[in-house]
């Protein structure tokens, strides 16, 4: 057990790997790809359900990440940075596939919102994930993505704000509204 722990603690962080790659050890980029490949595929499948070629889009995300690696601010976390690239790639892909522009401005970006972040235990979160699996496709895009990032990718509000480039309070309000919408869609009385 202790060996496992030490192995885990000795794993280089994403930011360390980026530093290595930037110092010339480009092979380390493969490790980053392996770490994020499944996560981004899962994120893409949930975000763009119904669209094919998600693997190609994810590969494109890694290509762009490598090309722009020098612009990554190593004082920040790597994961929101690569998810941001993925978000942009997925949005572009959806625009291309559906041939209509995605409206990114919403009134909820304008004003501050008071969000009561009710603490959820593991059971609540697992239950919510189950509801999301059932009803995710029926949700509006603007609610779907924050919910995916929050419940499946386990991002904080601030990280979601960094990925979607929307105010932190808007993240909170969209997650709450998304939960309410999901409850209505599934017609359940369960407190989500």
């Amino acid at each position: 057990m202790s060996d496992v722990r030490s192995t885990i603690s000795e794993q280089p962080t994403d930011e360390m790997l980026v530093t290595n790659v930037l110092e010339g050890n480009t092979g380390m980029f493969g490790m980053l790809v392996r770490r994020y490949e499944q996560k981004l595929l899962r994120y893409g499948r949930r975000f763009m359900s119904g669209l094919e070629d998600i693997e190609d889009v994810v590969q494109e995300v890694f290509l762009r990440a490598y090309q722009n690696l020098r612009s990554f601010d190593r004082k920040r976390r790597f994961s929101p940075w690569i998810y941001r690239i993925a978000h942009n790639a997925f949005v572009n892909e959806m625009r291309r596939a559906t041939r209509h522009p995605t409206v990114e401005f919403n009134a909820d970006l304008l004003l501050p919102h008071r969000v009561q972040d009710s603490p959820e235990n593991d059971h609540d979160r697992a239950e919510m994930r189950e509801f999301l699996r059932k009803g995710l496709d029926t949700l509006d895009d603007k609610y779907r993505e924050p919910l995916i990032l929050y419940y499946f990718e386990e991002m904080s509000y601030a990280e979601i704000s960094d990925i979607l480039h929307i105010p932190v309070s808007t993240v909170g309000v969209r997650i709450n509204r998304g939960r309410t919408a999901l409850r209505k869609i599934l017609g359940t009385n369960t407190s989500l």
Binding site: G30, V33, E55, Q67, R70
Partner: peptide
Amino acid sequence: MNTQSIDQEILEKIEQQRLTMRSRRDLA
């Protein structure tokens, strides 16, 4: 596409110089 090959494919591109980072000058 085989998803397991993504990292191999990318590393290959890097080795063959078909994939390069944007230069510092470019970013500056």
